[in-house]
């Protein structure tokens, strides 16, 4: 890893160089009263002064709906057309928060458990992540409680920490980050020795992850799930804004003799998610589904995939129509 300084002017030149390299750039954009990742062509389109994008950046490597393969039926035979990794353009994800960048590891752990997921990997291998250290946070943020932090480098290829002069500390973390920086090498000059932590938000940890995990190991039969989930409406808002939720459905899009098999987002909170053909539903009640959501992230994933399924971004708490606040709920479990 290498630390450099990039001036405000250098940042602009570098961004223009990325645009000129014909890579797709996704960055947070303000529109319709929300901030979300959209394709941009200039630095001026990029939003500033916001806590968090409504949706995470996961769609970049796990699209909401993606064609797994397509087929055509001809005279009783079937011709298959496989997903083509080369159809995925080189993409730069710009101004990703460290909590979003940290979400790539759990996502990849799920998609590549035992067998490789060709589609996810095709996106991932063509993606460069430029994160920004966080100077602000709100009461839903808790990255520091789940192994993260406002200047955490996990998952980032290059991280910028903005300085009062409009320039930034540039930490070039991976080879991919280096390649991106090399599009405008003279924009990156010697590190001035700025203190990174002075330009990041101070966010004390809200709970001890170890404590939560040890409590959860014994909590399956606890009454806490019913208590916490009573007001839960059973929608998928929390799962869909989450940077690490990866549950999916496989569906068929048919047009006459042609068709496509589609993978799309799904959520363990939906009542029909686990419904058997026989009519038996192992997770019939909302309390069971809420328990699954929490245990999967904080207990099953750490045990099976060696990674926590939560990055503390707080999106689920902000998106929930009925204030199912994950920080409040996890803290109360930790304190039990």
């Amino acid at each position: 890893m290498e630390t450099k300084y990039i001036s405000k002017e250098g940042l602009g030149r570098w961004f223009d160089a990325i645009v000129a390299s014909e890579k797709r750039i996704y960055a947070p954009v303000k529109s319709r009263g929300q901030v979300d990742f959209k394709q941009v062509k200039s630095l001026s389109e990029v939003a500033d002064e916001y806590i968090q994008t409504t949706q995470s950046i996961k769609a970049a490597v796990f699209p909401k709906a993606e064609i797994l393969f397509s087929y055509e039926k001809v005279n009783g035979k079937v011709n298959l057309t496989d997903f083509d990794p080369n159809s995925v353009p080189e993409t730069v994800l710009w101004k990703v928060h460290p909590c979003d960048a940290a979400g790539f590891r759990p996502l990849s752990a799920i998609f590549n458990w035992d067998s490789a997921d060709k589609l996810h990997n095709a996106h991932l291998s063509r993606t460069t992540i430029v994160s920004y250290g966080c100077a602000i946070a709100d009461e839903s943020c808790f990255c520091t409680s789940v192994n993260g932090g406002p200047g955490n480098l996990n998952g980032s290829d290059l991280q910028l920490t903005m300085l009062p002069d409009g320039g930034a500390i540039a930490e070039i973390i991976t080879a991919r980050g280096e390649t991106l920086a090399s599009l405008c090498p003279d924009a990156f000059v010697a590190d001035r020795g700025d203190d990174k932590s002075a330009h990041l938000v101070d966010l004390p940890a809200r709970f001890s992850l170890e404590e939560v995990q040890s409590k959860l190991n014994k909590a399956f039969d606890s009454s806490v799930w019913k208590q916490q989930s009573e007001r839960c409406l059973g929608c998928g808002a929390c799962a869909f804004v989450c940077p690490t939720c990866a549950c999916f459905d496989i569906q068929e899009d048919v047009h006459g003799s042609k068709g496509r098999r589609i993978r799309c987002w799904d959520a363990c909170g939906f009542s029909l998610f686990t419904l058997h053909t026989s009519g038996h539903n192992p997770r019939e009640h909302q309390s069971q589904r809420w328990r699954q959501r929490i245990l999967h992230k904080f207990s099953y994933m750490p045990e099976r995939l060696n990674v926590v399924g939560c990055t503390g971004c707080g999106r689920c708490s902000r998106a929930c129509p009925v204030d199912m606040n994950i920080l409040e709920h996890i803290t109360s479990i930790a304190e039990q």
Partner: peptide, 9 residues
């Protein structure tokens, strides 16, 4: 993104 929060609420 079809989270069906509208339906659930």
């Amino acid at each position: 993104f079809k989270c069906y929060a509208c339906r659930s609420a």
